[in-house]
């Protein structure tokens, strides 16, 4: 029985150690791919930086600001025009008088 327990435990350990190597190998492949992708995208971004002129950049910023401000103004006016209205009580709009009352048990 001691041998069964020992062999059993060693097999569990061996299987999980094997999985560590598999996962490490998988991780190595994927981190390498990821690093390569990041480096490639950094290079592209760098190239794009040079491609865009300063004037174009300024135009883009101004347009974005303009859109943002106009959007802000519209929302602001919307908020201001909504007023809370309180209606005074009247028997004409009362639900109590409009619905049939349940009979009272005596």
């Amino acid at each position: 029985m001691l041998l069964t327990a020992l062999v059993g435990f060693l097999i569990v350990f061996a299987v999980l150690v094997l999985l560590i190597f598999v996962m490490k190998a998988m991780g190595w492949v994927f981190t390498r791919e990821h690093k390569a992708k990041v480096a490639a995208s950094a290079q592209t971004a760098h190239a794009h930086d040079h491609a865009i002129s300063d004037q174009e950049l300024a135009a883009a910023i101004i347009t974005a600001l303009k859109l943002y401000k106009s959007d802000l103004h519209d929302r602001e006016s919307e908020t201001l025009t909504i007023n809370r209205i309180t209606r005074a009580y009247s028997p004409w709009n009362s639900k109590i008088h409009g619905l049939t009352q349940l009979p009272e048990r005596k």
Binding site: V12, L16, I20, G27
Partner: peptide
């Protein structure tokens, strides 16, 4: 997946199974 060494800790914790066996 990020830290495969965790498998070792998971394996060590199985000692309880075989000790109780």
């Amino acid at each position: 997946i990020a830290n495969p060494k965790s498998f070792l800790l998971g394996a060590a914790a199985q000692i309880g199974i075989f000790a109780t066996f």
